[in-house]
Design a protein around this nucleic acid. Structure first.
Lengths: 184, 184
DNA sequence: ACTTTTACCGACCGTTCGGTAGGTAAGTGT
DNA sequence: ACACTTACCTACCGAACGGTCGGTAAAAGT
């Protein structure tokens, strides 16, 4: 969906139906034929984004042939690819900070973030108890979103790269810790 | 400045000169008498925000009568107060994600974030080398901004509270580590 | 005293906003 | 064959947008 790109690039309020129509090759009224309001269109876009996100990023969490560290890195690197394309950042975070107070799309955004946390948590839980994995997954995502913020401000991908290194190193440390416990 | 509140609450694009004028008690043309364009007004607002931020939040970093842990906690709690008031979140982060790609205000936003990182770094550097303190300060702010994101989505202050606990606990651990090195 | 500047207003500009009305041309069902 | 639906268009709506205009009334300068 081209509309996704537009919203991702320019945010909700700074994207007009005119622009969205142009991006799809339709006229504005043609777009309104398919979606009754801008808000409805955005809701559809968000469902689509969640689906893409699940298929392209979160699916990595269940590639059980890879060891957890590599799965985590691969997952994060896929997300980084989405974020650095046209320096868009994270779609969910962009919209969340823009519309979070009014809460127009909070339910969808929340589930998007929670799906993500669950996927990361599933990876981490191989090296730590489920509740610790869940907490750490949430923390990792928070740190990542902050890194994306700095990336958007500075255009310096190093912030994202550093984060990935930190996350993977942390997981390795947790893995050593868990295996030493098993040994004991 | 009442304009700050408006931009903080509703973002840049979703705040019209009409609303800003109403918030200040002026008419629109009266507002244009003081600021030639919306962009210029926003730039002034950002300077003002930085100044307030420095005076109210970052100044805590140099209250040398408090131990570092308490200084960090006080600083973070002050920021939390700003963020939870009307559930606005972090002004810099809101505007950064909304306008970061076009880069209209990136310079000011960057210095705002870097001032912040410097203030936190100054606190941390009492327990660790300067370069490590700087890295850790940046990391803490990233994690904090992520926590604010989740707070905006869920309206649950616990995300911020948990972050503060983590940050202070981390610093305490670093303090013990540094004192054990000094003993050796 | 009088001139100039400052702060502000109501009214208005052209443009764009989200959204609608009415029409057309290509399928689709029967 | 003919009705009906679908997909899309041009043209338009009132409201709101960022921004400007000419004027006024109070303050400041001299």
């Amino acid at each position: 969906m081209r509309c996704w790109e537009e919203f991702h690039l320019n945010g909700y309020y700074n994207t007009s139906m005119q622009k969205l129509a142009a991006a799809t090759g339709l006229q504005k009224a043609g777009l309104y034929h398919h979606y009754p309001t801008k808000e409805d269109l955005m809701r559809r876009v968000m469902e689509f984004a969640q689906e893409q996100f699940r298929n392209y990023v979160l699916s990595v969490a269940t590639e059980l042939d890879l060891p957890p560290e590599q799965r985590l890195e691969k997952l994060l690197r896929r997300h980084k690819k989405l974020a650095t394309l046209h320096r868009r950042g994270c779609f969910f975070a962009n919209i969340a900070l823009e519309t979070g107070r009014e809460g127009l799309f909070n339910e969808a955004l929340k589930t998007g973030m929670m799906d993500w946390a669950d996927a990361v948590s599933r990876i981490l839980s191989e090296y730590m108890p489920a509740d610790a994995a869940q907490r750490e997954a949430l923390r990792l995502i928070m740190e990542y979103e902050g890194a994306v913020l700095f990336y958007k401000l500075t255009a310096d991908e190093q912030h994202l790269e550093d984060f990935i290194h930190r996350a993977v190193a942390n997981l390795k440390q947790a893995s050593e810790h868990s295996s030493s416990i098993k040994q004991a």
